[in-house]
Design a protein around this nucleic acid. Sequence first.
DNA 1: GATGAATGAGTCTTCATTCAT
DNA 2: TATGAATGAAGACTCATTCAT
Lengths: 200, 200, 200, 200
Amino acid sequence: MKSGKGRKGQESRKRLLKAAANEFSLHGFHDTKVSTIVKRAGLTQPSFYLYFQSKDAIFEELMTDFRSHLKKLTKSFRLEQGINQEDVSKRVLAAVETVFQFLAADPDLTRIGFFLNPDAKQVKSDLAMALKENLEAEQQLGYFRFGLEMDTVAECLIGMIEHLTDFYLLTGKKDPASLAVQVVDLMMRGLLPGQASETE
Amino acid sequence: MKSGKGRKGQESRKRLLKAAANEFSLHGFHDTKVSTIVKRAGLTQPSFYLYFQSKDAIFEELMTDFRSHLKKLTKSFRLEQGINQEDVSKRVLAAVETVFQFLAADPDLTRIGFFLNPDAKQVKSDLAMALKENLEAEQQLGYFRFGLEMDTVAECLIGMIEHLTDFYLLTGKKDPASLAVQVVDLMMRGLLPGQASETE
Amino acid sequence: MKSGKGRKGQESRKRLLKAAANEFSLHGFHDTKVSTIVKRAGLTQPSFYLYFQSKDAIFEELMTDFRSHLKKLTKSFRLEQGINQEDVSKRVLAAVETVFQFLAADPDLTRIGFFLNPDAKQVKSDLAMALKENLEAEQQLGYFRFGLEMDTVAECLIGMIEHLTDFYLLTGKKDPASLAVQVVDLMMRGLLPGQASETE
Amino acid sequence: MKSGKGRKGQESRKRLLKAAANEFSLHGFHDTKVSTIVKRAGLTQPSFYLYFQSKDAIFEELMTDFRSHLKKLTKSFRLEQGINQEDVSKRVLAAVETVFQFLAADPDLTRIGFFLNPDAKQVKSDLAMALKENLEAEQQLGYFRFGLEMDTVAECLIGMIEHLTDFYLLTGKKDPASLAVQVVDLMMRGLLPGQASETE
DNA sequence: GATGAATGAGTCTTCATTCAT
DNA sequence: TATGAATGAAGACTCATTCAT
């Protein structure tokens, strides 16, 4: 069942993953047929089972791919923490932009791991945790006002990122950089006027 | 299709809708079987087709229900606008809480209309529009700082609401009131310290 | 089960028969739904079973109607036989025209009894028998040439009548009289030239 | 749908067609179940859909088969025309016998294409046209008497052929040759005595 | 490494028919 | 005389998956 050690096999496998990712992303899990994936990969149905145990299995592999990529990202956050002495806003901005960039990198995978995945909530929760840790640390340092529950704040951030990704990023309407700027500006200073200026 | 004019019929129809809403909400469209819906409603399969043309049809009816309820809500926003002379934050707080209350009122319907619905993006977009209009109006009156693109802000708000609903509200972890407070506090004043206090 | 003695009942029954005849005639037995018949008769499904035991039953009743009407016709042939002293061709012409007239009288019933009926072959066979008897009698009298198997001839006649009915009569393209003339002319004198003229 | 390029597939396909033809011929379209066809072909239901898109599709394929065979036949008529200088009656006899032979060759297909087919009328009409052309040509040459509308005559011939096929041929009661002789004798000389003899 | 052929299991849907009122 | 409500029974079709080559 784990054939495909040769070059040709590896390539067939990749074509299947690519086709599957796009189909899942476009039509969701149920409305994606193995027959379609296979056709798009220029193979026949039995070949599919040469590389993947089941339709579920290939979907899971894609979800896992997304997740492991995401894990790397969250690790990088932890490393950053404290190292950087520059302005908080800039650091947060950089972080948020990095997230958007990551989510824009492979739209199909993002849709699968972030929206189609039945455990998407968990995935987002993991990301939220990472953010929360940073946020709380900065809060301890006095960079953020007290009286804010940072876990809820983190979930809010996730919510914004999630929705803007769905609405602006994956549709190509806006790019990671500009989205990051707006989100962070709003998050930092809020809606009300008379706030501390960005440069202050 | 047009059966069920009598009381008994109407009740069977409602039972079907209720059961369907819950099943869809729990398992999604494809993994919800007509046979299950029907069983839960204490009927047999053919009866289902006495009241709905197809499985798709009942799903659509539920989505439409959600949408029309939501439309009423958005209308009420427009009416409010400008009438109320009290503090902006309070007004926004009331609006957001109303939205959370609405979304918490019928969890199954919310999950269907807000998360399962293939056109959920559109639905949310409609809600975002309504919010945006109010936000822009307030912005013109000087209540909100300039330099913020209110449509993006509205989408951010939607993102937060959406995610918090999924994460805290529909899971029963938090209630509409407390969520509203936190969201609005964050939205109004932002993360940075030294902002205008709420009461100021 | 045999309700419907009152006037209103009788009328409902007739409306059902009429609607059924037309539906069967247009769409055949299987593609005719009881629900449609009933709708066209302005009644509901249970009412149907007030007047007929089943869908098969109403179809059979219609076939029987056709058959009994046809039986009267064939009887009239036997009576005619020998009584009439006029020219043979005229007698045959009259007979054939009568048949066409009968078949044109109630197109729906004709289609049911003559074309849709699984036992149509039998029905036609009965008609063929009646014709055959007359033909053989006339043959004995020397009006028709010998060397013709009259049962086959009768079946030929039936075939012509059947097909012309389907093709010209029920579609309104030709009328009984003209069809009869052509059929009889052909049957009497054949295709070859130099035959005894009709008037001779 | 496009499966079955190999030998085995082609054979399964043929078995399905054969079984279907017989079932349709015996029970008609509606009372023929895919499950039965498949059983008779030694396959399971899904395999059916490997070769045919639907129950309708296989029925249509059978009708088309019949039609295309028939088309070849009618073409051969046109070629014959005028080439042959022998006696007209013999030519007509040969033609009619050919038709009967064709209709007797594959009884199931004949029943489907000639009797069950909803467009049977059209099919017969096509055949009638071919006959008509020949008849009119011969009529122009003086072989047939004038005063006969050849399209009606053709339809009459079709009617006879149709009915005798149903009644004698497909039931095995008579063979193509003897039926042809009788039909042609009747058609040529008619019923009345004192006509030109066949050999004259 | 790949495919032609086949299938088990399941789901939606339809329709004639009946029960209680 | 008639109907609102409900159902038993059955059939077409789909799809992920496997066997043999």
